[in-house]
Simulated scan of single mutants.
Amino acid sequence: MRTFNKLSVALLAGAAVFAVTAQAGAAEKIVISNWDGYMPSDMLERFTAETGIEAELAVHATNEEIMGKVVAGKGKGYDVLFVSSPFVEALKNLGLVAELDHAMIPNMKNLYPEAMKLEYDPGNTHSVPYAWGTTGLCYRSDLVGETPGSWMDLLQPADALKGKVTMLSTDRWLMGAAFLAQGKSVNSTDAADLEAAKELLISAKKDLLAYDDTTFYSKLVSGEASLVHAWDGWCNYGIAENADIKYVIPEEGSDLWVDTMVVTAASENKEAAHKFLNFILQADNGAWVPANILYKVPNKAAMDALDPALVEQFPNLGMTPEELLKQEQLRDLGAGQKAFSKTVTEILASN
């Protein structure tokens, strides 16, 4: 996500809980767990002002962290969770998320039609997508000889780029680069695919400057790196500082990651939780994400309101839903997760 969400690692100093004081006499209260910095700091205060519902924010660093808490406590103590798409499937299979009542979320109309047809949750029966994007190559166009166009440009770089390349170490994206380079599914758990990916990634380590999930764009800005493995939104942070930084999806394709909102099955305040989802789907609230953290959202009304100058400066913000859905969606690995995780551990531990 790894921390499935890109902002959480860099911004989170530690798990903390921040209470938002409700209006006097608020009859309801919900607890929301989200990554730090992933919604406006005044969001819960404004939600309370509009609805009279008290809200409390619990911050999680990773999907795995909140997943562990929710599984251990069977979801008790939480009403709304922000999690990435594979975890929606996992929580649904465990019976820990509620089926949504779309009649209580009229702002679902603001979503792109394509955002209602995502494979991990067709029809958004158990989740509402919040942000989405791709993973690809972020590079200094003034420092690379030719525009990179393949995952192999990262995994087997030209001599001039050796030692000037970084890769994401979080499991799904680390493996995804190798799978895509070899024409395999990003969701593969096949033993032969895992072994082939492991061999390629271990070989690639000798040419890396570093594994880097948090400061890779800064390395591009400084010139320490010339080509990095990056999520599109975080590449935009580099572009904001240096216009020579560009983003490209390799010819073999990318993954499509989706960060979502779910209501826990254990919530005793499901109506209030639905009201929160509906509030988030307001066009102005959705527009905060691309305008402030430079990630695309599945909220058409929000994207339609986006300043065209932002898309001009950060071209990947202009990717259409049709373009995004050409990429392979990340899915829950189910029983194959154990072998997948073992392979990643072996890669990272290798010399």
Rank of each mutant, 00 (worst) to 15 (best):
I105N: 03
W231N: 11
E268Y: 04
A178Y: 08
L111W: 02
S188M: 00
H274A: 07
D259M: 12
L57D: 06
V70R: 00
F340Y: 15
S127M: 08
M175Q: 04
K206D: 11
A273K: 06
W151K: 09
V258A: 06
L91R: 00
A24T: 13
D307K: 06
K326R: 11
T134P: 05
K164V: 12
N124C: 07
G25Y: 07
S254I: 02
G145F: 05
P106N: 03
L12Q: 13
E54V: 08
I249M: 08
C138Q: 05
E241H: 11
T51Y: 09
A13D: 15
W35H: 11
G336R: 02
V144F: 10
I249S: 02
Y295D: 13
N351L: 09
M39I: 12
A27G: 12
E146T: 14
G318H: 10
A90N: 10
A309M: 10
V248Y: 00
Y78C: 01
I202Y: 02
Q337A: 15
G123D: 08
K296F: 04
A191P: 06
L7W: 07
E119M: 08
Y211K: 03
N63T: 04
T264N: 08
T214S: 14
G52M: 03
L200I: 01
F279C: 01
P129E: 00
L100P: 08
Q327N: 13
N107S: 05
D212F: 06
E64T: 12
G14E: 10
Y120T: 09
K164Y: 10
W234T: 15
L57I: 14
V97G: 03
F82A: 13
W151L: 07
L220N: 03
A305R: 01
M152V: 02
N316M: 12
A24H: 00
T147H: 05
N269D: 05
S203C: 03
M43E: 13
Q156C: 12
L81V: 07
Y295M: 14
L91H: 02
A225E: 02
E119K: 07
A131V: 10
A13C: 12
E199W: 02
A15L: 13
L154I: 12
T125E: 14
T214G: 11
Q156S: 15
W288C: 06
E322P: 06
L161I: 12
